[in-house]
Design a binder for these strands. Structure first.
Length: 376
RNA sequence: GGGGAGAUACCGAAGCGGUCAAACGGGGCAGACUGUAAAUCUGUUGGCUCAGCCUUCGGAGGUUCGAAUCCUCCUCUCCCCA
């Protein structure tokens, strides 16, 4: 994997770049649709590619390991072959499930024992095991196994958790070094900075992660309920330490405004379930602001979902029709809303990239960040 | 013509003398959702000058300290028999 910086914004830390993988190039800053179980919920892979114009999508190690399981993924030749997506894929390691499934797992320095949310069966995830699983899934970018700490998180816990995450990272690096990709293309390991909302822990972690010389670096443990100011403060702090010539990935972020602000701090990659999950629940993100399409006021608004929208669905369907579909719990409603939101997110990061290259990102960002936060 | 059952808030449906402005569903309205245990979850849903008051359980009377709940008549629905 390679990263080339294309352009830097003179008035902020924003940059435009290009990641090259064996499955093609990724223009940064980029938003990566989340496809936890091997599918971007509600969308055909064809639409993710040609309508949303996604350049890379996510898969999840924990979920894919449980279902369909490694046998199937190995038989078919990896996730790309399985779901038909021939562009880059990134897999999260299950570190987020250490957080979100906290009441069904036991964490030790050795690893984590999960109780499956599907059938209750027990499974052990160690850094070595997770690397093996990510090898079998076959993503282009594989995430180190970490603990995403909750918020709030007391200092003592955050510090000891960080120590474990760093220890696990060493083991991930070692395991990746000692194993080969299974399908003939390369896999890049991204380590993850943790440290909750504590400056000294974040600095310590960022310095440690930077010292590993990975192809790209991630910032985790944010957007878990902390105030936005804390999230930006930590992101800023960490971005100043992580190497400039490697992509920076802010995990799990976020709202359109979060993404714009974080790009300004030097982040290159994002992922979030928000466009799909919130879309299914009737929340639309548009260039003019946020719409709760379930609200009564849209019932007779026959204008396009988003007149400036980048997706086919924006032109074809009206707000009133989409409201009807969502309110009626029609599957198509969830599909349209998800597709619209993802297309908007991808449009937004493409715009950001263009403005970084043209040199007016900072001023554009300030206007746009306010606009996308409007409640319509 | 004869016999029986029933009418409760937007809808369905509990309640069968006080703790009932009335359970529970649905619908309506609003909110939440950030590396997806989420096509999920939460709040609210008679009115008002709102820790109190007013009007409500088909209609009109009545019994009672007190009625959605008991009695009488009326209106309307549904079922069975002829």
């Amino acid at each position: 994997m390679q990263f080339n910086l294309v352009s830097k914004d003179p008035k902020s830390a924003a940059r435009a770049g290009e990641i090259t993988t064996d499955h093609g190039k990724i223009n940064t800053p980029i938003f990566m649709p989340v496809g936890t179980a091997g599918s971007v919920k509600g969308l055909h892979i064809h639409d993710v590619k040609t309508d949303v114009n996604a350049e890379i999508i996510l898969g999840n190690t924990y979920h894919l390991y449980l279902r369909p399981g490694l046998d199937i993924l190995h038989q078919v030749g990896g996730l790309h072959k399985f779901n038909g997506w021939d562009r880059p894929i990134l897999t999260d390691s299950g570190g987020y499930q250490v957080y979100s499934l906290a009441d069904r797992r036991k964490l030790t320095r050795e690893g984590v024992v999960f109780q499956s949310h599907i059938d209750g069966s027990k499974h052990q995830f160690t850094p070595e095991r997770v690397m093996d699983i990510e090898r079998t899934i076959g993503a282009d970018i594989i995430m180190a196994f970490d603990e995403c700490t909750p918020y709030p998180c007391d200092y003592k816990y955050a510090a000891s958790s960080l120590d474990i995450t760093h220890h696990w990272l060493d083991r991930c690096v070692e395991q990746v070094k000692n194993t080969e990709p299974q399908y003939g293309y390369n896999q890049a390991l991204f380590p993850i900075v943790q440290g909750s909302t504590y400056r000294d822990l974040r600095v310590k972690s960022a310095e440690y992660i930077a010292s590993k010389g990975a192809d790209g670096n991630a910032i985790g443990g944010l957007s878990v309920g902390e105030p936005h100011e804390d999230m930006y403060e930590m992101t800023d702090l960490v971005c100043r330490i992580l190497p400039d010539d490697k992509p920076r990935y802010l995990m799990g972020v976020g709202t359109p405004a979060n993404i714009l602000e974080s790009i300004a701090l030097g982040v290159d990659m994002f992922d979030c379930v928000m466009p799909t999950r919130n879309g299914r629940n009737g929340q639309l993100f548009t260039s003019e602001g946020i719409i709760n399409i379930k609200n009564e006021k849209w019932k007779d608004d026959f204008s396009p979902i988003d007149p400036n929208g980048a997706s086919m669905v924006d032109q074809v369907y009206s707000k009133a029709y989409l409201r009807h579909l969502i309110v009626s719990k029609e599957i198509l409603g969830a599909m349209i809303a998800s597709q619209h939101n993802l297309a908007f997110y991808l449009w937004l990061v493409r715009q950001a990239r263009e403005h970084i290259i043209s040199g007016d990102f900072a001023s554009w960002k300030n206007v746009m960040a306010a606009k996308v936060n409007n409640r319509l």
